[in-house]
Design a protein around this nucleic acid. Structure first.
Lengths: 213, 213
DNA sequence: CCAGTTCCGGACCGCTTAGTATAGAAAATT
DNA sequence: AATTTTCTATACTAAGCGGTCCGGAACTGG
């Protein structure tokens, strides 16, 4: 069932990666078709539209690829075999490292990819907003699990934790873009996790003692 | 020393406010001169350039105005008569309320105003980055003051506080833009401030007792 | 070898962009 | 009345935008 006809001269995957890097650096709107075509190997508009459909369709593919690769730093959030606290801490630390790694653009495509958009490109904004919503639900799920497991008390302070974590996560995109180093963000995460420990029902290593008293 | 000649027919201040709102909503690049001229009272290109010089010059004026008005929610950060903890908490709460108020665009112009920019507009990005740096220094100053006053211990956990707060602050712009309500952010701030209290040398109301022991 | 299929390079589309130039009229001060 | 300034309105530039179309080239299956 091999495809007939003249084969494509460029590597579609490599072109997609190049587009990913460009979109990640500049965001959706400021990235022009000319820049895209150039970075994807000087392909012609005909090739571009045949292979990707449109600028928006390409961006959607790019976002999907981002989620499946770099975005996997968020995976612990959905790993129910992990203790909730570890899931959140790992997610934050992996995000911090990923977003500050210099071998690719800094910051987060999901947060920064379409933050400046004219009304006509609202679908693109909506796409990223949905992705951000997903991550908020992840934090929510972890905290809910921690409450169910009796690790956190069911109080207003605890209820606010998901918002606190997701706000911090999204804020890292800004800090990373502004040049913060991973160590700095890592230290902030360490301090942030203090709040979990101060709310926890079982302070470290004392759970048995507390339960028996 | 009154100026001679025909007076300007539109209100420069009102036009500036209209431009502020538009830039705040859409960001720098997606906002076109046509949109600007329209929202500023259907002024002609000649009037526009005579009054404001260029799109970038207008944006710089807009940013300055923003800092002097809405941006004043950050003022507590520089108010040395305030206890450092209060200064930070007030700044965060006032920011949260301001950024979620529906009578004007949501989020923060300084964080979101030029987050998607082509390389040619880097000066605009740099302008906002400098403003963000200022706020980071504000958090830094408060924490340093708290350490000097003996309220916080001089530990790595404390050192990371400024990064933690500024990351959270900048993250609020994203959450506000995504529709979070002020109460939700306020609750997150309450929880975040827990970390300060858990680090503090003098737990509430016990300072005297602790010092004497 | 040829028909069918697919891709490529380049010309081209209509539209928008930021910004300039021109004109004459209107409103203020001196 | 003369001068100065901004006004409206229009026309214009040069470039860039996302996207389309066509003729020819390159490949495969029959």
């Amino acid at each position: 069932m091999a495809r007939t006809g003249r084969p494509r001269e460029f590597d579609r995957d490599k072109a997609l990666d190049a587009a990913l890097t460009l979109f990640w650096t500049q965001g959706y709107e400021p990235t022009s078709l000319n820049q895209l075509k150039a970075c994807m190997g000087n392909i012609s508009p005909a090739s571009f539209y045949a292979a990707f459909g449109s600028k928006e369709a390409l961006f959607r593919e790019v976002v999907q690829r981002y989620v499946e690769t770099y975005g996997q730093v968020m995976a612990p959030l959905w790993d129910e075999t992990l203790p909730p606290r570890d899931a959140i801490e790992q997610t934050l630390r992996r995000s911090a490292r990923m977003q500050t790694t210099r071998s690719h653009p800094t910051g987060c495509l999901i947060v920064l990819g379409a933050s400046n958009c004219s009304p006509e490109n609202q679908p693109v904004q909506t796409l990223l907003a949905a992705e951000r919503k997903r991550s908020r639900k992840g934090f929510q799920a972890c905290v809910t699990r921690a409450v169910e497991q009796g690790e956190l008390p069911d109080t207003p302070l605890t209820e606010a934790l998901p918002t606190l974590f997701s706000t911090f996560l999204h804020g890292m995109a800004c800090e990373a873009r502004d040049g913060d180093r991973p160590k700095k963000l890592d230290a902030a995460i360490t301090t942030l996790m203090q709040v979990w420990d101060s709310l926890a029902v079982h302070p470290k290593g004392m759970s048995a003692a507390l339960k028996l008293s």
